[in-house]
Write a protein that binds this DNA or RNA. Structure first.
Lengths: 234, 234
DNA sequence: TAGTGGTCTAGACCACTGT
DNA sequence: CAGTGGTCTAGACCACTAG
């Protein structure tokens, strides 16, 4: 038999949950009962149960037992990457602005920095077939000695821009997604009318001490660009 | 010491990855090397490594070893629930339409059903402080014997509406997020002008055989409603 | 062939929960 | 108290990889 015991056991329990033999809140048989029932060692039972815990079908309470989770189908996995979440990858990315500036009040607040601290501002336009389909603006606190490499910045995702002295593993990302009408300058960049519906993604990056290390917004032409997400059960 | 060995070991390796002692693609010490290095049993080492595999810091290749992952910071966790992703929970939900109808061509295609198969249509408006902030429409294939309970449907999330004979664990959800200008009927429901930017979430539900069991769209007034997501490293 | 990860066993001790 | 899950040990055999 190619299929490991612990997979068979956890699949068995999973199907009991799927078919409502076991319902949210119900206790699962104890490790000892399962060990006897399937005739395997305790570690094998634990491996099966650990798998279900990781996939959030059940949860363990020390001293009491395992219980079926209240399902949270509201949790989804969203793949977001400003250069490739666009409808088809963009043919070209134009770097229209790259500067070290004093932060505006808004930028200072978002990055939690004093107003003397210079920041790098990057503005890009994403095009497909010659037409602008999205634009973005990013702000990164500037520290002396960090080179500004146009070519690198142009095609990087925001985390890649920031992750220079720290590993990209150390960076946390938070997104706010909303819809907005194009304002004057954005409309001009996207060659659209003012008020055109845009999908906007505000992006915050933090280092491993929760200090902001990047802030920006990407605007995508509404009807041409989509984000996709799916519920993360397996 | 309250902290388990396997946590100490995996945290140790994690910090080596964070501080770029280990970089994406690099091999991690083998289980045997780690066992000797930390003076623990192989199972303890494996538990530490399994933890890092689950959190996608490293991955295992049978017969070769463990390697540091190429980080995928584009993966985010999005919490979406049409009744509560709105800015502050809505005070009231109005059920403005509940009917069993023949599917339009669009609905038939989305639900992959023949045009004789009746569907339930549900339309709601979400209000806050008396003002409409969002509206939705859902379609569910109708099967005889399923009661239509107005009160239940009104305050349910889409998966809850569908999960009657199947466990909610058996349902898969896929989302498409985009921006759109309000069309005539939507604008009227939301008491807004035509063309007002809306955040739209198209929702597909599938059963455990990947058969569509629900389709719908929620429109939210753009500037007042946000979706939040964050990168899922721990 | 030696080394790797993948699976599995049969014990052990602990802290915590219920009665 | 007996039962639960949480941690840990010291073995074992397997399939796979590489020199």
């Amino acid at each position: 038999m190619g299929i490991p015991e612990y997979i068979r056991i956890s699949d068995d329990l999973k199907s009991q949950i799927m078919s409502q033999v076991l319902n949210p809140g119900d206790p699962v048989q104890s490790e000892n009962q399962l060990r006897e029932h399937y005739g395997v060692s305790r570690m094998t039972v634990r491996k099966a149960l650990t798998r279900l815990v990781n996939e959030e079908y059940i949860h363990a309470v020390a001293g009491k037992g395992y219980f079926v989770c209240e399902p949270g189908l509201e949790k989804c996995e969203l793949i977001y990457d400003e250069t490739f979440s666009l409808s088809g990858s963009p043919d070209s990315i134009d770097l229209i602005d790259l500067d070290v500036i004093k932060p505006t009040q808004m930028v200072g607040i978002k990055l939690e920095i004093p107003k003397e601290q210079p920041v790098i501002m990057i503005r890009r336009v994403f095009k497909e077939g010659g037409e602008a389909i999205a634009c973005d603006v990013k702000y990164i606190p500037y520290h002396r000695g960090i080179p500004l490499l146009e070519k690198e910045l142009k095609n990087s995702t925001f985390p890649e821009m920031v992750a220079r002295k720290n590993s990209i593993f150390a960076i946390t990302k938070k997104l706010r997604i909303f819809a907005a009408g194009a304002e004057e300058d954005t409309a001009r960049l996207l060659n659209a009318e003012e008020g055109t519906p845009l999908l906007a993604v505000e992006e915050f990056l933090y280092d491993n001490h929760d200090k902001p290390v990047g802030w920006g917004i990407t605007y995508m032409l509404g009807e041409r660009n989509n984000l996709y997400a799916e519920a993360s059960f397996k």
